[in-house]
């Protein structure tokens, strides 16, 4: 049976996709600004965050409106509550892009500490995870959601590698590098947090599709 409600759910889905596109774009731009030492681009990321905040409120309103008017059950209910949670995670991801842009602004007028290798790698991991997480939500694709969750250890490994290098090879050997190295450490930490939020999105998608909670239960992810 055709339901008007499905049109409403599609609209919610589109808005969540928009949130995902904006959040992922913000992460990409913030690291591009770092790589190309582009203060203009970094300031753009900070300014654009207002649009993401506005969209977050719209998505929340839409979810509450749908719950109030339709009193959804079962997968409809799980879809809407998952949409709300994903929305909050994406907004946090966009905030982390702002954090990266702010650290970048601290670095643009200082000499380059080292060529960036692992931070761009970590960025690619983070961007892929966001894309897959949103796609898994849109398609209800559990395998893709699993792939996101299973990518998180790689993000942690890269962050550890970045930390080790910055501390051992720079800060310990030459204290004058510390102010710049700390900014890069923070950026690596922010990118790793992006991956954590993305993992939360994927775990919520798994709940949405198969009504099983994998959050805080990693063993359920590999069992089947």
């Amino acid at each position: 049976m055709e339901r008007h409600f499905d049109t409403e759910l599609d609209e919610l889905k589109k808005r969540v996709i928009d949130m995902g596109t904006l959040a992922e774009g913000a992460i990409y731009k913030s690291v591009e600004a770092l790589k190309s030492r582009n203060a203009e681009l970094a300031r753009g990321v900070i300014a654009d965050d207002r649009d993401i905040d506005r969209l977050e409120l719209l998505v929340d309103e839409k979810c509450i409106d749908l719950i109030a008017r339709y009193q959804p059950m079962a997968r409809d209910l799980r879809f809407i509550t998952t949409g709300m949670k994903i929305n909050a995670e994406l907004e946090r991801i966009a905030d982390l892009a702002v954090d990266i842009a702010q650290r970048t602004l601290e670095l643009v007028d200082k000499p380059l500490l080292k060529p960036l290798v692992d931070i761009p790698k970590l960025t690619v991991v983070a961007q892929n995870m966001i894309k897959w997480a949103i796609e898994s939500f849109v398609k209800g694709d559990i395998e893709l959601a699993r792939k996101v969750v299973l990518s998180d250890p790689e993000a942690n490994r890269l962050r550890d590698e970045i930390q080790r290098e910055l501390i051992d090879d720079y800060m310990v050997k030459d204290g004058s590098t510390a102010p710049r190295a700390v900014q890069l450490l923070l950026i690596a930490r922010f990118l790793e947090r992006v991956c954590d939020h993305t993992t939360n999105i994927a775990e919520n998608v798994i709940y949405m599709v198969q009504a099983e909670v994998v959050k805080h239960h990693p063993e359920r992810l590999t069992d089947g």
Partner: peptide
């Protein structure tokens, strides 16, 4: 109501039946 096991239950309670 949150996680029905049978598709027929799901379809009924979500108004797809």
């Amino acid at each position: 109501f949150a996680s029905p096991r049978d598709k027929r239950t799901e379809d009924y309670i979500t108004g797809r039946y």
